[in-house]
């Protein structure tokens, strides 16, 4: 955590041209990922968190998508990069893993071959050397018999094992940044614990920064150094994990943390739920996206609240709770 900026996302916007006009999904998201840190982007479905990750990787293939703003990786603007240059970054300096390891691997090839393929796409390595590296990586993921597993097909492996394979593949070319989109959502809780431990351990061993996309505040609390809370396509609140959990300032963050049932501590008679539901992209309010569900909302909330940073803690709310 030397504070050096690795990735800088500035006013990223993703919208889609539809029959009814342009539909904005991500509406101006800005954050930085520093070298060696784990930054978590957390939000509910429809908040735009996954699309933000895909936009950074330039993996949105829909021809109707419009992406603006800037994404600078080591100072280089990714959005303007020619495709061949972007391709050599993908899977090289920036790697990505996905939610469902069941479907994220090609069923027709052994998992070893799929790792080898990535190494050979980026490194000037022979097949044998790449294979040795793939087996070493699988071993580093805590897989007991990596040589055996490398020869298996995806359908022969359990969900947790497949996610280990995905992580091994992602780390095969020593990425500076690993983007993990809901990496443990499809897994059972005991396996999720294993994978989170693995991500924490690997951050130390491989020195990669991690951009972790999740909906689970428990996962955030466990692994993230800093957290960005998204709601309705915009950042509601961002800050260091401990500070944000200790003193959430945005009414949405406060409500979200309150609505999570806890395993420890007093058992509440009723969960303090947030009324209503997140707005669908086509009927988001013009000002603060959370205003229709917010108890503190007033007339001023019809305007877009600016994201104001104070002591490293950013909040986009006219009625933010004082720290």
């Amino acid at each position: 955590m030397n504070g050096e900026t690795l990735l800088e996302v500035d006013d990223l916007r993703v919208s889609f041209r539809t029959g009814q006009g342009v539909l904005p999904i991500v509406e101006g998201v800005s954050f930085v990922v520093k070298a060696g840190e784990i930054l978590s982007v957390v939000g509910e479905s429809g908040s735009g968190k996954s699309l933000t990750a895909l936009a950074i990787m330039r993996l949105i293939t829909d021809p109707n998508a419009v992406i603006t703003g800037s994404v600078r990786f080591r100072g280089q603007d990714l959005l303007g990069l020619p495709e061949p240059a972007m391709r050599s970054l993908r899977g090289g300096a920036i790697a990505m893993i996905f939610q469902d390891p069941m479907t994220a691997l090609t069923p027709a090839y052994t998992v070893g071959a799929q790792i080898v393929e990535q190494i050979m796409a980026h490194r000037n390595a022979g097949r044998m050397a790449a294979r040795t590296r793939a087996i070493d990586l699988l071993g580093a993921m805590g897989i007991a018999s990596p040589r055996d597993i490398a020869g298996r097909y995806p359908h022969q492996l359990s969900g947790g094992m497949r996610q280990r394979v995905m992580i091994a593949m992602a780390l095969s070319c020593d990425p500076a940044l690993l983007i993990a989109d809901e990496p443990t959502t499809a897994l059972d809780v005991t396996v999720q614990a294993q994978i989170l431990e693995l991500i924490l351990r690997l951050r130390g061993e491989f020195g990669s920064s991690v951009l972790l996309i999740t909906h689970d505040m428990g996962v955030v609390a466990k692994v993230a150094d800093r957290v960005v809370v998204m709601y309705a396509g915009a950042i509601a609140e961002a800050g260091a994990t401990r500070a944000l959990f200790a003193r959430p300032a945005h009414p949405y963050t406060i409500g979200l943390l309150g609505a999570i049932p806890r395993l420890r501590g007093p058992r509440l008679v009723r969960l303090p739920a947030i009324p209503g539901a997140p707005p669908a992209p086509h009927d988001r309010p013009s000002g603060c996206g959370f205003a229709p569900r917010c108890a503190a909302a007033t007339g001023i909330c019809a305007a877009h609240p600016p994201l104001i940073t104070h002591d490293g803690h950013a909040v986009a709310c006219f009625h933010a709770r004082a720290a």
Binding site: M57, L59, R87, G91, M96, T103, A104, Q118, M166, M169
Partner: peptide, 17 residues
């Protein structure tokens, strides 16, 4: 549109591959 194609893209493979 399958997930494994998205993975293949994320690996940095070319469109032809």
């Amino acid at each position: 549109n399958e997930d494994y194609i998205r993975t293949a893209r994320a690996k940095g493979l070319s469109e032809r591959q």
